[in-house]
Design a protein around this nucleic acid. Structure first.
Lengths: 114, 114
DNA sequence: TCAACAGTTCCGAATTTCGGAACTATGGAA
DNA sequence: TTCCATAGTTCCGAAATTCGGAACTGTTGA
């Protein structure tokens, strides 16, 4: 297993962010992670209610989120702890993440807009 | 040529917006249109400096922008007049478009962030 | 040493994107 | 009218991407 790649803050590309968050499943995962404060594991974040996401797809979702710069993942024992990079991101792209989550109606503790 | 489809405001999906704007070429076109006030034609918006975009790709870009709800297109004589739906969009997804254009450093009259 | 678990990688099938060539619609000129 | 030029769309095959099952890797606990 090669080490996980995380882009440096200044290397994060807006197109990668938008692409990553143009998939509702990934948004749901990311929003859940943003809401859940601490680091959720992959499988804990996987339950989106409506569908069983195959492990490999899930792994790929996390990879896309990670490599776009949206999350940080770190192995801790047998599982993976994930956390958002929201604070950093907001410095680089002010208001972006919040506006996106709001658009999806996924901002923690907010009524669904969609 | 079938008539052009434009989604109603309430049918616009955030995922479609993000997907459409996850392509730098489309962003460049959209930003140019947003900057250029009035309705630019397809070919007028096509010149992004760095690359000759094939007509068919260009047509497809406009289709993606149109069907995601980002722009309105209307035939006027031999050409196509396009305009952004920024005002409507900002009502439905407050701050979203601006945050995205800012992230790309494409907000009219702003230094490049990327 | 082994089994179980969390997640990754591999790889073939299905889907999507890209772009050249042919086509369509409109307006102006002869 | 007919013909031509212009602006854009559609078609369709090739290339690239995505999806997901199966096999694999790394870690912990028995």
């Amino acid at each position: 297993m090669r080490p996980l790649f995380h882009p440096a803050l200044e290397d994060i590309k807006p197109e990668a962010i938008l692409y990553a968050l143009s998939d509702p499943e990934r948004v749901a995962i990311f929003a859940k992670l943003a809401g859940a404060g601490g680091g959720g594991t992959c499988s804990a974040l996987a339950d989106l209610g409506n569908r069983v996401i195959p492990k490999s797809s899930l792994s790929n979702h996390f990879k896309v989120l990670r490599e776009s710069g949206l999350i940080m993942s770190e192995r801790q024992g047998v599982e993976m702890r994930n956390q958002t990079r929201c604070t950093e991101l907001d410095e680089r792209f002010p208001g972006l993440i919040r506006a996106i989550l709001t658009a999806y109606g996924q901002l923690p503790g907010q009524p669904k807009a969609n």
